[in-house]
């Protein structure tokens, strides 16, 4: 099927040939940029991942060699630790765990704060304070986390001491089995601001008469939330969830700032982004591995991006 006949099927009936040509002409600059900077690199990595590389020079065709090697690499998936559910499990499982914990938490917290602030005096100040984390560069967030969890000066350990939990005081980002959650907490802090903001505007869009009507109809607080508010903010939930999933799959700076290029002691909180960076920019340069890991990231993120883009 040619591009023209495909478009003709999908466009309004009254788009004739002449109009179609015009549409294509106007789309050309955008499509060109998209092709050069998005599609091109994707195809380049997809192809490149099947070759061996000498530094940045392409070598011989290697088939699935790099793919197999990557999935056997302990830094990407540590199969034996994964079975024992012990960290480090490798960047891919760790990244997915991050997603599993981070996304529901930040979504629910965002919704909770949005609901809490909705009728509060001074809500704009409170909202700005929560949203501030999202506007802060993620590298800074990572550094702040290091300060927060510092065993001597960190506020978190100080809090534990104040609560009488001296025994729990530790360097949270160096503790292999806990470190990832300590960092996820930082990610949640960042993302909550974003989801709160989206939910706040969704809540503001709900006609107050609907909630009053539900009150008169006899619905209590919980029923009003379940029957009226939740269904009405559902489309926003889809956006919030997918945006934070994409945010997590791309996560890099927080982890890098908190644990360096290795992703913490033994890579206990390493993520895919970090592995791409390491493979591509630290010796020995493993360019094809970087491409494979980047493609794994892409495969996870692409369907979500597609879903978001096709939402009405």
């Amino acid at each position: 099927m040619s591009v023209e006949s495909y478009l003709e099927d999908r466009l309004d009936r009254d788009v004739d040939g002449e109009k179609l040509t015009a549409i294509l002409v106007f789309m050309l600059p955008g499509l060109t940029l998209f092709a050069i900077f998005s599609v091109g690199p994707m195809v380049y990595s997809a192809v490149g991942s099947f070759f061996t590389w000498n530094g940045f020079d392409i070598g011989q065709f290697a088939g699935f060699e790099t793919w197999v090697a990557t999935f056997q690499d302990d830094a990407i998936i540590n199969w034996s630790n994964l079975r024992a559910l012990e960290y480090p499990m490798g960047a891919l499982p760790q990244n997915l765990i991050w997603m599993l914990v981070h996304v529901p938490l930040s979504t629910l917290l965002g919704l909770g704060l949005a609901l809490l602030f909705a009728d509060l005096r001074g809500r704009s100040v409170l909202r700005s304070m929560v949203f501030l984390a999202f506007t802060t560069p993620t590298v800074v967030i990572g550094l702040v986390l290091l300060f927060v969890y510092d065993p001597q000066a960190g506020i978190f350990n100080e809090l534990l001491r104040a609560l009488g939990l001296e025994g729990q005081v530790r360097n949270w980002v160096q503790e292999p089995q806990i470190a990832i959650y300590a960092l996820i907490a930082g990610g949640v802090w960042v993302q909550t601001g974003f989801s709160m903001l989206l939910y706040s505007s969704a809540l503001a869009g709900i006609d107050p008469a609907l909630l009053e009507s539900a009150r008169v109809d006899g619905a209590g607080r919980f029923r009003r939330f379940k029957d009226i508010i939740w269904p009405l903010v559902k489309p926003v939930t889809a956006v919030v969830v997918i945006m934070s999933m994409i945010w997590v799959i791309r996560i890099f700076a927080i982890v890098y700032a908190a644990g360096g290029p290795s992703g913490g002691p033994g890579g206990v909180f390493s993520v895919l982004g970090l592995e791409v960076y390491q493979a591509a920019f630290s010796t020995p340069i493993e360019y094809s591995k970087a491409m494979v890991v980047a493609l794994i990231e892409l495969v996870i993120a692409l369907p979500m991006a597609w879903y978001i883009a096709s939402m009405d």
Binding site: D207, A209, L210, S213, V216, G218, I228
Partner: peptide, 17 residues
């Protein structure tokens, strides 16, 4: 309002969309 046994019709109808 739930315990007053009143029913109200709003100016914009307030139907749950």
């Amino acid at each position: 309002p739930a315990d007053r046994n009143v029913a109200m019709v709003f100016q914009n109808y307030a139907l749950y969309p």
